[in-house]
Design a protein around this nucleic acid. Structure first.
Length: 601
RNA sequence: GGCCCCGUAGCUCAGUGGAUAGAGCAACAGCCUUCUAAGCUGUGGGUCGAACGUUCGAGUCGUUCCGGGGUCACCA
């Protein structure tokens, strides 16, 4: 039986204030007539009602309103509020300790605390979307972590979520790797080269570009213009021919294509498995690139699309401040947007989606806007449920990552480096010397990936971020390991004290709470709202910030108050409950970020 | 040039229109015989890019400008 709380503190306070206002002043108010904030630490109280906006309609001073409202709340909700004070237009309310104990009592063991009841909505989150001509890099990591985390956050908000990826497995870029392999590999395979498949294929892509540049230089040296050279370079001509052969389905080309893509998928799978990315469905462009042509005919009939003299088909988006956009070439072949429209439609039809989310970099904002507008003009019912979750590019201190210039931070290398750093720190501290080799390796992975995921998810997705490859990602402060450490510390308490007595006694009879105790319970109570906010904004950084603040507050509590040597047995029980619940929320929050927790570190 | 995003401490970032703008890193000073010091406590550090405007109240909303980035492909 999963237990979902009906009302958070803030909505309870909001309701009680609304109720009190109407009883006091015989007027109707809405939640826009006042605000509820957390009380600033320098004032006495937990939550603050900001009253200024009420002054006009009530024609009373804010102090008077505060006094009247405060008295009324204390009188009518005495079990909930214990005291109040008014400073200028701020009504500071203090929540009764017994109310806090009650919340703790009811939820400290609830594994689903903060999660929402089913909405019945089905949402697809498409992310990752790699090309098969090169390995994954830092930018893909941000995409993968973001997509995975948003999917989990949407699940926590009660939605059914389908994680999907579309693999760009066809096109000129793969042919480049294939041509270079034919020219230089002498039949080598990832096995014979002892290399991960995606890196192996990626190396031939780089090889292609080197060769291409060499040919261009030779041609320009012999007097050709740069433009001519680019067209005439033999290796490029071969590549273009190969793409044509691929589209015709020439068996030898298709066989090589399958084999090389297979190598890449083996490499990708290894990386995905290690970083914890998974997909419920994978689309392949080789299967979808012909989609979307049927709507062209339909659009032409409805006069939404028009044909130019050369036979190419266009849509006019000038009324939406966008230009004309080509949707079908003169020779009848489709362009990128064509298949995107087809795939969008297929997704909604095959999966009966309520919403389709695309996790794609902000460089494609325009493209996604066009896609949405075209589906709208074509009258497709799902047009408004296409959502582009755009995120900022990851750049290096030295500028953008460019695969051709070798300035790409490789995903596998970075993971290795993070895990190695975790190993170094762990060995220096020497707290887990009794671990087996396997246990140690698992710990390093948990910590290294935790540091990396937290680092990439703690900032607002839509902001571009700058990564300095010279400075390793930190393990102190606002980091994954800091939160993981707090969790491990709590496990240490539980090992020492044991939780047996909690199971027996249900009643928490502590009447007075210390500031840190009540602050922790109040912060824990907010987790539910945090999950909602993160879901509404599709923003994992809200979770990351929350989980950090919770860990930080717990660490203060930890140094200030002892659990095992608590002043009384009742205090001990209370603090055990706080510790158990904090650990649970930390674990749950980190899980939404794709980060695991260790029992010791 | 049109459209979109960003500009907060030395660095990386928080900050639903509300009180004296906050963290982490870096710097400095303390705290391990007691549940894990990957921690805790404290100090210093800011004309919130600039100027007007709306408001009882602006880092937050509006306008203009300055600086940075993206995009405006018959590439994906």
């Amino acid at each position: 039986m999963i237990y979902f709380r009906k009302m958070s503190f803030t909505s309870y306070i909001q309701n009680s204030v609304l109720q009190s206002l109407s009883e006091l002043y015989a007027q109707t108010f809405t939640d826009k007539d006042f605000q509820i904030n957390e009380t600033k630490p320098e004032f006495e109280g937990d939550y603050t009602v900001v009253l200024f906006a009420l002054v006009k309609s009530l024609k009373k001073s804010p102090e008077t309103i505060g006094k009247e409202l405060g008295d009324h709340l204390i009188k009518n909700y005495s079990g909930f509020f214990s005291s109040y004070n008014v400073i200028k237009g701020f009504l500071n309310l203090k929540i009764d300790d017994t109310q806090l104990s009650k919340i703790l009592q009811e939820n400290y063991q609830n594994k689903n605390f903060g999660k929402k009841a089913p909405t019945g909505k089905k949402i697809m989150v498409e992310y990752s979307s790699p090309n098969t001509n090169k390995p994954l890099h830092l930018g893909h990591l941000r995409n993968n972590f973001l997509g995975w985390s948003v999917a989990e956050i949407l699940k926590a908000n009660g939605n059914e979520v389908i994680k999907a990826s579309i693999v760009n497995d066809r096109g000129i870029h793969i042919c480049k790797s294939m041509i270079a392999w034919q020219m230089f590999a002498n039949g080598a395979t990832p096995q014979s080269a002892h290399e991960k498949g995606d890196h192996f294929v990626g190396d031939y892509y780089v090889r292609f570009n080197n060769e291409y540049q060499k040919e261009i230089k030779e041609l320009t040296d012999s007097g050709k213009s740069e433009e001519e050279a680019e067209k005439e370079a033999p290796i490029m001509k071969e590549t273009q021919q190969m793409l044509l052969d691929w589209e015709l389905g020439k068996p030898d080309v298709r066989a090589l294509w399958s084999e090389m893509n297979g190598w890449v998928y083996e490499g990708f799978d290894e990386t995905y498995k290690r970083i914890g990315s998974d997909f419920d469905h994978t689309f392949y462009e080789s299967n979808t690139y012909l989609l979307g042509k049927d709507f062209v005919q339909e659009g032409l009939q409805k006069n939404i699309l028009f044909k130019k003299e050369d036979g190419s088909v266009w849509i006019d988006l000038s009324d939406k401040n966008l230009d004309e956009k080509l949707v079908l070439r003169g020779d009848g072949t489709s362009v990128y947007i064509t298949q995107d429209i087809g795939l969008a439609k297929q997704k909604f039809e095959d999966y009966h989606l309520d919403k389709s989310i695309y996790v794609i970099g902000d460089e494609q904002l325009h493209h996604m806007k066009v896609l949405k507008e075209i589906t709208r003009k074509l009258g497709m019912p799902f047009a408004d449920e296409i959502f582009h979750l755009s995120y900022g590019m990851v750049e290096l201190t030295t500028g953008k990552m460019k695969s051709r210039e070798g300035t790409v931070v490789d995903a596998d290398d970075l993971v290795d480096e993070m895990v190695a750093t975790a190993e170094k720190h762990t060995k220096e501290l020497g707290k887990v010397n009794d671990f087996t080799k396997e246990e140690l390796q698992e710990l390093y992975e948990i910590l290294g990936l935790g540091a990396m995921k937290f680092y990439l998810l703690r900032v607002d997705p839509k902001k571009r971020m700058i990564f300095n490859p010279e400075e390793s990602i930190d393990f102190h402060g606002f980091t994954g390991p800091f939160v993981q450490y707090t969790y491990a510390r709590i496990q240490s308490i539980l090992r020492k004290v044991g939780t047996d007595q909690l199971a027996v006694s249900n009643a928490l009879s502590v009447s007075r709470l210390f500031p840190l105790e009540r602050q922790l319970i109040i912060l824990l109570e907010k987790y539910s709202n945090i999950i909602s906010d993160a879901g509404n904004e599709m923003n994992p950084s809200i979770i990351a910030n929350y989980v950090f603040n919770l860990a930080k507050l717990f660490n203060s509590f930890y140094t200030e108050h002892s659990v095992s040597n608590a002043e009384t047995e009742e205090k001990k029980k209370l603090r055990l409950c706080i510790s158990v619940m904090t650990a649970g929320v930390l674990k749950s929050g980190l899980q939404l970020l794709g980060i695991k927790v260790p029992d010791r570190m």
